[in-house]
Design a protein around this nucleic acid. Structure first.
Length: 330
DNA sequence: CTGGGGAAGGGGCCC
DNA sequence: GGGGCCCCTTCCCCA
């Protein structure tokens, strides 16, 4: 069974009047990894907020009533490009939209590999905070992934997932012929056995184009292709950044920083149209949509636009008939 | 019921 | 590789 941390789902928010969401309290964390936080204690101990970097969203001091520039009149109707510089992909239908981990039951990240084989002391999981995939793989099929080398040595081989029994006996004998070295076409390392080369190419060769290592979270079923991504994810379980005021824990320092603003009342982001201030930049961005006649999300059926995807989804589900195949308006 | 605000989460990117 | 930040998204609450 999984060695999960004890997570207490608070029934109410009495311990923090500002919270609207249930709070996960890690009561015990067996083999708790080191504090992966950057400087959470510095943040909470000092109680001093780091300055928010200036941006296009014009942060202002918490209690400043003066504005650096008069609000433009009247509000521009189309979203300012400075806020939406990206080319957005088509919105995902909510039924397929990703959900946050604490709500999700099914893993969002299917394993990259059918299996991961441990390689002894040099294992990437030597860090106690990182665990090997807790899904014990099915019996390892030798040659489950094998490279097919092209004639041109400068080209990377393709990988095939042919079952082991598909390899002809003569092929195996060829691969194990004494004196024959199996060289990695990507990095040049040679191995006495084909399986050695195969393992190298699957899990160690950074130059290769084959599948890379996978890093599995020991607290849930998510799998990442990089150690950094896994470490970042693990913080969502360990929640190393703790608010000294209410005790709520967060995965990242800047999340805690934003939370502390809910206590201090600091709202560094102000709307240039109505002068309303927000503690969160994204909330200001959403607010700016309310000043626009043509909003970000439009119904493909009736062309009505909405400031939020959730509103469009409700609209579509409410009988417009257009479904939730929303399109963003720019 | 709808629309908006508040709070928070995650991945990605840049330094 | 890690930290900080950005952006998007989601959920909850309220008017």
């Amino acid at each position: 069974m999984l060695d999960m941390p004890v997570t207490v789902m608070a029934k109410n928010y009495s311990h923090c009047p500002l919270k609207k969401r249930p709070v996960h309290i890690l009561e015990e964390l067996p083999d708790e990894p080191q504090n992966l936080s950057t400087k959470p204690e510095d943040l909470s101990r000092s109680g001093r907020l780091t300055s928010v970097s200036p941006s296009s969203l014009s942060p202002v001091s918490p209690h400043s009533s003066e504005k650096t520039s008069p609000p433009p009149s009247p509000p521009v109707l189309s979203p300012s490009p400075q806020f939406y510089p990206k080319v957005y992909p088509p919105p995902i239908s909510p039924e397929y939209a990703p959900q946050t981990w604490h709500r999700s039951v099914a893993p969002l990240y299917p394993p990259v590999y059918p299996f991961v084989e441990y390689m002894g002391p040099a294992s990437p999981y030597s860090d106690s905070s990182l665990s090997p995939p807790h899904h014990h793989p099915p019996p390892i099929q030798p040659l489950a992934l094998r490279p097919v080398y092209p004639a041109d040595p400068s080209l990377s081989p393709t990988w095939t997932a042919s079952p082991p029994h598909s390899a002809a006996p003569e092929d195996l004998s060829e691969k194990r012929r004494p004196g024959v070295r199996h060289q990695c076409p990507d990095c040049g390392k040679s191995y006495s056995t084909f399986s050695g080369l195969s393992k190298h190419r699957q899990f160690h060769c950074a130059a290769g184009e084959g599948p890379k290592k996978s890093f599995s979270c020991k607290f849930c079923e998510k799998v990442y292709v990089s150690l950094g991504a896994l470490k970042m994810h693990i913080r969502t379980h360990t929640l190393p950044c703790k608010c000294t005021i209410c005790g709520k824990a967060f995965s990242r320092p800047w999340l805690l920083q934003g939370h502390i603003r809910t206590h201090t009342g600091e709202k560094p982001f102000s709307c240039t149209y109505c002068n309303r201030a927000f503690a969160d930049r994204s909330n200001l961005r959403a607010h700016l949509q309310t000043h626009s006649d043509v909003k970000k999300y439009s119904c493909p059926t009736c062309s009505k636009t909405f400031s939020r995807m959730s509103l469009l989804t409700k609209h579509a589900e409410g009988g417009c008939g257009g479904g939730v195949h929303a399109e963003k308006v720019y």
